[in-house]
């Protein structure tokens, strides 16, 4: 699984040894999408606190932050952990709009969640501006190998076809989670950060005018929540 991660820095210590140097801190918005119960909140909890808990279904959307130190920059990930339940789908655009990284999460032991991830992908592609969002397909619950319904090859080939990056993780055991976050950080910095105005600088009191963003999905909110 690990060899599929592009740009993984061999040594995770790398992100810490640059602490002494003053570096820029950039804000990066990451959104977790996928069916309910695939482990989005568990992944988010691993990202931010490196712990595992049984969580109840997310209400609306949970917002967490995690700071990643790369060699020449610090990324402050603002993680939007969305609820997978259908009742929240119409508000989800609110959360994924303007995201620099979108993680499409599915459960390797449930095929329908894999199909659902593809639906999310199609929805994201509608507003996808090349180079503005890093899309990552994540097969979670790798620890449930004995109940696997979606093979590694299937995930990988979907990712190849649609130009996504792909990783299989286990939020339960923590397998590949660290590496995934680090890889996403590098990727975001390389693809988005390089662009003019791709990532904004983070100040103690961030102020972002969300209203000036595109209103592509404004109409979605007329149906249901």
């Amino acid at each position: 699984m690990g060899e599929k991660l592009p740009q993984v820095q061999g040594d995770p210590q790398l992100r810490r040894d640059t602490l002494s140097r003053p570096v820029r801190t950039l804000r990066a918005k990451m959104v977790l999408l996928g069916s309910s119960g695939v482990g989005k909140s568990s992944l988010a909890l691993r990202f931010c606190k490196d712990e595992f808990r049984n969580t109840s279904p997310t209400v609306g959307c949970a917002y967490l932050t995690q700071v990643m130190h790369l060699s020449d920059v610090t990324l402050r990930f603002e993680i939007w952990d969305t609820a997978g339940e259908e009742k929240y789908h119409s508000v989800t655009p609110l959360y994924y709009r303007g995201a620099h990284a979108a993680l499409l999460v599915y459960d390797v032991s449930k095929r329908d969640t894999f199909i659902r991830a593809q639906v999310w992908l199609r929805e994201l592609e509608k507003q996808y501006v090349a180079g503005s969002t890093v899309l990552w397909l994540v097969g979670n619950k790798g620890d449930l190998a004995q109940h696997r319904q979606v093979s590694v090859q299937e995930g990988q080939s979907l990712a190849n076809d649609r130009g996504l990056l792909f990783t299989e993780t286990s939020a339960l055991s923590g397998d590949q989670v660290d590496k995934l976050l680090l890889a996403v950080a590098h990727r975001v910095y390389e693809c988005v950060g390089a662009q003019q105005g791709g990532l904004s600088e983070w100040q103690e009191t961030p102020h972002v005018d969300l209203r000036r963003r595109n209103h592509l999905f404004a109409s979605c909110c007329k149906v249901g929540p």
């Binding site: 909140s41 988010a44 909890l45 931010c48 969580t55 109840s56 279904p57 997310t58 209400v59 609306g60 959307c61 949970a62 917002y63 967490l64 993680i79 952990d81 609820a83 929240y88 508000v91 959360y95 929540p225």
Partner: peptide
Amino acid sequence: GASSAFQAGEIWTPI
């Protein structure tokens, strides 16, 4: 009270 999920982070939800 019914949702322990709130303890993880900040929640933003329609209600």
